[in-house]
Write a protein that binds this DNA or RNA. Structure first.
Lengths: 338, 338
DNA sequence: ACGCATCACTGAAGCGCTTAACCAAAGAGA
DNA sequence: TCTCTTTGGTTAAGCGCTTCAGTGATGCGT
């Protein structure tokens, strides 16, 4: 709507100080100008209430100050927290995070990724739905690309902070097996087009090596969706005695689904989560999960991304190990009780 | 980093078609140009893989396509969900949501609000920490301002979608009183500088009219913070028998605090939430809460905001009534049992 | 006293798009 | 036939900033 008071521009403050617009531009950014002049310029700028126009700056300089954050699914509480943390940290380094939700849809993810690159974000941080997709290569060519969670094979990413799913999944299976579980359902992010996500491949491999009866169930992250999946699995002919959920959000669905069917956690069905969201320990029973060092994660991602933007330096892939948080949601199955 | 392939600009496609850049600009936006020419231009544009540069467009047209979403606290699960939903909906109408977290800090809120206005967002949607703050008036003068939750008295907002806290709080108190509670703790968003948020004023008034012993406790939204507040309150000399939490997130803290102290919900302490987040019904016992029609809310906010941007039309204030969702977390206090 | 850096700053050209103003040609009305 | 309007464009002036290529005025060494 309105904008009564004309915007204060560089020119205004150039006139006030008797300098050229160029000089003012330099001065305000602390470049090539003696301290004394800088002070004078800044003083006038403050007095007039000058605020640089980020749009004009972006057009002229070629950098927008925006960083895209493309989340696989914002229905996932953990990704919500992560996105919020990234937003805060980027604001702290003078940039804006553009948080965008791919809703677990690989095609939407592809569209949004290229759209964001066209938007001229300085960098794009992605929690990939489909890490194996072909378009990442192209996106990496157009902007600084950082991935979280899974690496993007084949794409020249500026940074990758990935989870050691191998370790997490292996540990989880071992714990469940030690409890006497043999029939295990794995809930994974739904992935209509990608049949070979790292975590799933690992799950299969580990399961085979342990001689387990493992089934994979793609699931959305939202409570209702995950509940529906769990309900279906639990009311099948020969239901599993344990669930391994690749996100806490999905584990919540198992709790809800079990409850609907009158089943008890952990007596009738054990549940293992991944992420260790704060709310998970509030459930009854508290959810066993695997925690990744979120603070470190955010820190690494922001630092490395900024470094890639400013200094054009790529970082090595960083693998984060999980910390097991065993809690009450895992117990021996009823049949295996003494 | 890179940008090997030179950007395709309007000029390129002007050359290809033999038209002027201006004509192409019009054609691509479907203005003042015969259909035949439009088709031709669009065809060439597609072939060259043209993507309009939003930055340049923003500079020239004065609209950025960005809408700021300033959340009071993104530690609140409900606000996280809302922000995500707004993001999706705005994307659906060709705009980007710039989600920003004020972390419950009125000063940060003020800074961010004016910063976003300077960023030239087309509109700013705010879930105010401090609705009574003076700066809203100024912000409303600089951009299209929409508020959610509480109204902004004195500011010329383009739209306000507010909650009927009066109804919600009144109903909540009555339910608690009917159960036999007289000593009630109210947990409110922390607000260092504002002693008169609507919901609190209402709480006081209603409490007095019912002759209740009510205390107000500012609390953060994150689990640890809210737990700490609840712990303190619960271990005080004459602890309340019930909590009324103005956000479900805070209620989670009461669950955790009570558990730590070996108290049972609802037998030792009743809990009432506000927001009815999906996870709330997953707790044991399920949390009693008040739901606002989230879909309608998002719909209204987006539609009205877009209308204010495009057609410069203000909307009337819209008040949403709460729907009570009584569940297991409220029961008569032990002492009042038969 | 002379040449040569260095300093402090200026001019002007863009970044890629929008938009107001203008204009020639074609068709309509008298 | 002549004027008036409409059609289908074109030109040019920015939007507010950055940045490259200067340019006089100093300071310095010799």
């Amino acid at each position: 709507m309105p904008k009564q008071p004309r915007r204060i521009t560089l020119r205004d403050i150039a006139e006030e100080t008797g300098l050229s617009a160029a000089a003012v531009s330099y001065a305000l950014r602390g470049l090539q100008v003696p301290p004394e002049t800088q002070r004078r310029v800044r003083e006038v700028a403050d007095r007039l209430g000058y605020q640089a126009d980020p749009i004009a700056r972006a057009l002229a300089s070629g950098r927008t100050g925006y960083v895209g954050v493309l989340c696989g699914s914002l229905a996932d509480v953990w990704q919500q927290d992560l996105a919020a943390a990234l937003g805060r940290r980027f604001l702290g380094v003078g940039r804006h995070a553009l948080i965008v939700d791919a809703s677990n849809d690989p095609e939407l993810e592809a569209t949004l990724a290229s759209q964001l690159a066209d938007q001229r974000v300085d960098a794009l941080i992605v929690l990939p739905v489909d890490p194996a997709a072909a378009h990442w290569k192209e996106v990496a060519r157009r902007t600084v690309l950082t991935s979280i969670g899974d690496g993007l094979p084949g794409a020249a990413t500026a940074a990758e902070v990935v989870f050691d799913n191998e370790a997490g999944v292996t540990d989880a299976f071992h714990r469940l097996v030690d409890c006497g579980h043999r029939r295990i359902a794995v809930m994974t992010p739904s992935r209509p087009t990608t049949p070979d996500r790292p975590a799933e491949v690992i799950a299969h491999r580990v399961a085979r090596s342990l001689g387990l009866d493992v089934t994979l169930h793609p699931s959305p992250h939202d409570l209702d969706g995950a509940t529906a999946v769990a309900r279906t699995v639990l009311s099948s002919a020969n239901p599993p005695t344990a669930f391994l959920c690749l996100a806490d959000s999905m584990a919540y669905g198992v709790y809800a689904g079990a409850r609907e069917l009158g089943l008890e956690v952990p007596d009738d069905v054990s549940v293992m989560g991944f992420d260790d969201h704060p709310l998970s320990r509030l459930l009854t029973p508290p959810l066993s999960s695997y925690r990744w060092p979120a603070d470190l994660l955010v820190d690494l991602v922001v630092k490395r991304t900024v470094r890639a933007i400013d200094e054009n330096k790529l970082s090595r892939r960083k693998v984060l190990p999980p910390a097991a948080k065993p809690r009450g949601s895992v117990a021996p199955p009823r049949t295996a009780r003494p």
